[in-house]
């Protein structure tokens, strides 16, 4: 998946549209990171640095926050080093999510989602309401579509999260 995403034609197709860039390429990179981490053997030393998944989820939320900044998107498009960093950090965020999710437990997960989902809503609103183009590389229509998509994704994520509370399970993996 990572190799496919890195193919120049696929990359430019996805990055040519702001909505595809943020709402398709980013999640796919996160998924690739998740799958990579799934294939790795469990490392106890790593988990020492990631008690209750806090460090991992914090890192993932910081990475997501950074790549929602319009200037960062512009830089990724104009500078290949930043583009490489984007791939790497999103992969790492995906891996961090995988390594942290199980041990995080309901509260740390809730805190992570309670931060990331409203953040996506606010950024979506900013993209929709900003009176000017906020990315040099994208037109206002792109920005509007990306903003609306972020809002929709955040609302859908919130609904799924809430519904998960109703799923019958006695297993809350972590205590945090």
């Amino acid at each position: 998946m990572l190799l496919v995403l890195a193919i120049p034609a696929v990359r430019s197709m996805m990055e040519g549209d702001m909505a595809l860039h943020m709402l398709l390429q980013f999640p796919l990179l996160l998924l690739a990171g998740w799958l990579l981490a799934k294939g790795l053997p469990a490392r106890a030393r790593l988990q020492q640095w990631n008690r209750a998944g806090i460090a991992g989820l914090l890192m993932a939320s910081l990475v997501l926050m950074f790549w929602m900044i319009p200037r960062a998107l512009d830089m990724a498009l104009s500078d290949s080093t930043v583009e490489l960093l984007k791939f790497l950090t999103l992969l790492m965020a995906g891996a961090a999510l995988k390594l942290s999710w199980q041990s995080a437990g309901l509260i740390v997960r809730g805190f992570f989602l309670g931060n990331v989902l409203p953040m996506m809503m606010v950024v979506g609103w900013l993209y929709v309401e900003a009176p000017v183009r906020i990315c040099n590389a994208y037109l206002t229509d792109d920005q509007l579509r990306a903003g609306s998509g972020l809002l929709a994704l955040a609302i859908a994520g919130s609904v799924v999260w809430l519904l998960a509370f109703f799923m019958s399970t006695n297993q809350i993996e972590g205590d945090t």
């Binding site: 437990g105 509260i107 809730g110 805190f111 309670g114 509370f165 109703f166 799923m167 399970t169 006695n170």
Partner: peptide, 19 residues
């Protein structure tokens, strides 16, 4: 939010789900 997440955790742990 922390307060209610802890309540949610404790309720789900005991009763299985919100339902």
């Amino acid at each position: 939010l922390l307060f209610y997440l802890e309540s949610a955790r404790a309720i789900i742990r005991k009763y299985g789900s919100f339902a």
